[in-house]
């Protein structure tokens, strides 16, 4: 870990001013990802700007019937918030499936979005990694890539975004509110993270001078028919090999709206508009679900160790959609899959 200067941001404007002035500085919120990366020398910020005391910790209802979640709301508080549990249970569920109680207590909403990949080679500074060191190559493509991506990969990078929370945010069509030097803007969660392309060092579309201030959820929460299914190597405290968030709006057994997003398979939460179109108007049953899964995975590509994810994702999509349709969402407390 390198020596760094530590400053506290007085308010959002000050935070933006400070980060804009020092392109190598980093915000620190819960620190559960950043500190780890600093210990591994992956991140070497000469300066940390502590935003953890900014008053971005409220969960408020919006005029449009949605919810606005401050960027510093701890993951635990968000998961247990009564309005979230009631109206957006898929978000509670996704958060609860992640990390451990202690980590969720520390982790912030904004930090969860910006957390970096868990690719083994990204973490080991002796290895070639285009994300960590652009142009150095990608050791994972021919290496131990069991946890890596099968969708949207590039020749430069096959990393995944590891968040569970973001997968639920993606199906909910959440928006990210950010503030920078030139003012505030909104980015849809589905457009927030990027595909690696030939610039895998850039994880997302947040600009250097921007801070996430809030997440906004639209009114539709799919509280009746939803499920988040996370598949991993042990029954808790492991990142997803594949996870699926499914949300359905049903009308007499037919799907009026269907949303589907995958985690653990791509550089971003993977939503398939095409698959969702294939759900629309169809009977909520196995054939429809299998067809949607086919569409999602049509262009999936494995790299050896992670080939299994393609078939696993197919089965998981069908199961999660079934859970959602039956209104029997996967409980994160029950380790048995429903």
């Amino acid at each position: 870990m390198i020596k760094f200067q530590y400053d506290r941001a007085a308010d959002v404007t000050d935070a933006v001013r400070q980060i804009a002035a020092d392109p190598e500085a980093r915000f620190i919120a819960g620190g559960t990802n950043l500190i780890d990366l600093m210990k591994y020398q992956v991140e070497r910020p000469p300066r940390l700007i502590d935003i953890s005391r900014l008053p971005l910790t409220s969960v408020e209802e919006t005029p449009g019937g949605g919810l606005r979640i401050g960027a510093l709301v701890p993951n635990t508080d968000l998961a247990y918030h009564p309005l979230v549990e009631q109206r957006y249970p898929i978000l509670s569920s996704a958060i609860m499936s992640g990390a451990s109680q202690q980590l969720r207590n520390m982790a912030s909403t904004g930090g969860n979005l910006v957390q970096r990949t868990r690719c083994f080679y990204f973490y080991d500074v002796t290895m070639a990694c285009n994300k960590r060191q652009p142009g150095s190559g990608c050791a994972a493509i021919k290496g131990i890539n069991r946890i890596n991506a099968i969708l949207g990969t590039s020749e430069s990078c096959i990393a995944t975004h590891p968040s569970d929370m973001c997968v639920a945010l993606a199906v909910l069509d959440a928006k990210v509110h950010v503030t920078g030097l030139s003012g505030s803007r909104e980015i849809a969660v589905v457009d927030f993270h990027r595909l690696p392309g030939d610039t895998p060092q850039i994880d997302n579309n947040l600009r250097r001078d921007e801070i996430i201030t809030a997440i906004e959820l639209p009114a539709q929460g799919f509280a009746a028919n939803h499920s988040y299914l996370k598949i991993r190597d042990r029954l808790s405290y492991a990142f997803a090999l594949v996870s699926v968030a499914a949300a359905l709006e049903l009308e007499s057994g037919r799907i009026k709206t269907g949303r589907l997003a995958l985690g653990g398979v791509a550089h971003k939460p993977w939503r398939s508009v095409e698959a969702e179109a294939a759900l629309r108007g169809q009977a909520a049953g196995p054939e429809t679900f299998a067809r949607a899964a086919e569409i999602v995975l049509r262009d999936a590509k494995g790299f050896g160790h992670n080939d299994f994810k393609i078939d696993l994702a197919r089965r998981a999509i069908v199961r999660t959609l079934t859970q959602a349709a039956n209104a029997t969402p996967q409980s994160q407390a029950d380790k048995r899959i429903r």
Partner: peptide
Amino acid sequence: IDHAFGRIMNANIAEYHVPVHAD
């Protein structure tokens, strides 16, 4: 171990899995 480098790639207890309570 990535045998090309003779280096252990999961040298931490997040990625070297042992059973947790849920298991």
